[in-house]
Amino acid sequence: MFATRWQPFNDVWSEMNRLHEEMNRVFDRCGYRDRLSGMASAYPALDLWQDQDNLYVEAELPGMKLEDLEIYVTGDNQLSVKGSRRVPEQEKATWHRRERTYGEFTRVVSLPFPVNAGKVRASLKHGVLTITLPKVEATKPRRIEVKAE
C-alpha cells in the first residue's frame, strides 16, 4: 500500500539494511530498543495519519527550517521530501559524541491513495514536519444510508 520507490543506486546491502531496520522497528514498538541503535536507511522516517478529509504525512526533522526543504507532489500520489542538515560549526572543538545525522536526503514515497496536489500544505513546528494532503472527492469515505423496509 505504501512503499518507498525503487532507487537504482540501492544495492543488496542497503536492501539488507532496510530489512534490518524493519526488524528493529518491530522491536522498537515493543519497547526493546531505543533510537540510538541502527540508523534508518530511509531518512526521514515517516508516519501517516488520516481523517475524513486529509492525509497527514509527518516526519521528525529537528533543526531544520521550511526553506531548507523541498516538498513535491507529482502525479497524484508521489510525494518527495528533499533537504539537507548542516553540522553545527565549531572552531577548535573536540567532538566527544556524534549521534545525530547530517547531510543531504531525499525520500520519494507512493501515497496510499490519490491526493489533491494543488492544495498540499506543509508546516514545521518544534522540528516536526507535517504535510497535509487533502483527499480527492473519490477517495473520501461516504456514508451509505441503510434503509429498513
Partner: peptide, 25 residues
C-alpha cells in the same frame, strides 16, 4: 513510551556543548 534522544557532545576550551534532537518538544 520514552525514547533516548540522539546527542552530539563537543568540547571547546571554555565549555562543553551538548546538542540534542528532541523533535516535537
Amino acid at each position: 513510551t520514552t525514547y533516548t534522544p540522539r546527542f552530539d557532545i563537543v568540547e571547546t576550551e571554555d565549555e562543553l556543548i551538548l546538542y540534542g534532537d528532541l523533535p516535537g518538544v
